[in-house]
Simulated scan of single mutants.
Amino acid sequence: MATPAAPKILFYSHDTFGLGNIRRTLLLAETLGAAYPRGSLLIVTGSPMIHAFRIPPRTDYIKLPCIDRTTADRYRPAFLTMQAGEVAAIRRGVLEHSMLAFAPDLMVVDKRAGGIEGELIEPIRALRRRHPLVKLVLGVRDILDEPSKTRDSLKRTRDMAIIARYYDEVWIYGERAIFDAVTEYGFPPDVSAKTRFCGYLKRPTQPPRRHNGPPRVLVTTGGGGDGTDLIEAYLEGLIALPRSVALETTVVFGPQMSLADRARLLDRFAMLADVTFVEFESDLTERYASADIVVSMAGYNTVCELLSCAIRAVLVPRTKPVGEQLLRARLLAARGMFDLVEPSELRPDRLMATVLAALARRPASRTIDLDGLPRIQDRVRALLNGTDT
């Protein structure tokens, strides 16, 4: 095992749909790498997109075979034509070998205490036996899914028992006053005692860029795998505007939008002179600084970026395969932080009317806890030093 000044930190990011898990993991790796300049950090991930992001200093990664989520707790191989059981065995074997060989001082698991379909359980047992001093943390975004569905899922996967037996802490990357996961998801007392609400994870920002001319709109749907309807509704609404209303728009497709959907959108809308189409950018910080308003889904990372930038936004959350985006968007919209278009009400006229109304108002002031990263640094220091704060 390494010393507290030069720790070995292992991250597990299972990654199925979208970019949220791996982006959050890379942010944590960058933050902890900066806090421990002599540390070594390793990410074990199933993300098909990790190569598209900047990897933080002193951080490396091991790639697991990709899987897709078909329902909340069901998965299948994404690319390999092998049987699901064979792919699961490969992932489990890579995980166990990596964890035991790296021998981390701290392991941070994203969202799934037992991993996808329990793939982490045996590796964690083996790690605990061979390296009993390792600290194990489960990191959870503010909202997993609707409370009743999440309770059922946690029961099926036996996550509460796994956390109680093997984990030292649970970090919730959110604010309890907005959504109390401990209560809503029915954490038992032994897990509740290990749980800490860290706050939302603030992202780097740039000063807003002043400009002359019409308002600038940024339309982004994260990975883009299910963003076609949102982009199409916005562009149809844009075309229908009277000539007296002008907007400059940038549309970011996302790396997981299908080639067919991308081609169809470009065939219909590429002729629009006031619209710029971008395939993908791993860092939208400059785009946020140049925009007057953002139209987006309501994924955790996107919302953290919007909160960090204090920019106007219209949220159109997805509802499948889980309902966390809809719940998050409703809670934040009820506090006046964003405008919301319900997925069932996504029509070009409705969306464009909401965008124009938001542009006509001053940006709302927001009071929300964005100190998650400093608190995580404090928790890591306490765990590695064997102290509590």
Rank of each mutant, 00 (worst) to 15 (best):
R196S: 10
G224C: 13
K194G: 09
V217S: 01
V217K: 03
G199L: 12
G224E: 08
L201R: 06
K194Q: 10
Q206F: 08
N212Y: 06
P215V: 07
A193P: 00
Y200P: 00
R210A: 15
G213Y: 03
Y200K: 12
R216S: 09
R203W: 01
G199M: 12
T205Q: 01
V217H: 03
R203D: 02
T205L: 09
G224D: 07
R210T: 05
R210L: 15
G224A: 14
P215R: 07
T220P: 04
L201A: 14
R210N: 10
L218E: 06
L218H: 03
V219A: 00
T221E: 06
C198Q: 14
F197W: 13
G222C: 08
T195R: 05
R210E: 15
P214A: 15
P214S: 12
G213A: 04
T205D: 00
A193S: 14
H211G: 01
K194D: 11
G199C: 12
P207M: 05
G223H: 07
T221G: 06
P215L: 09
R209E: 15
Q206D: 09
A193R: 13
P208W: 05
P207V: 01
R203Y: 01
P204K: 10
G222P: 07
P208A: 14
H211P: 02
R210P: 07
K202L: 13
R203N: 05
G223Q: 01
G199H: 11
N212Q: 05
V219Y: 00
R203Q: 11
N212G: 15
G213S: 05
G223R: 00
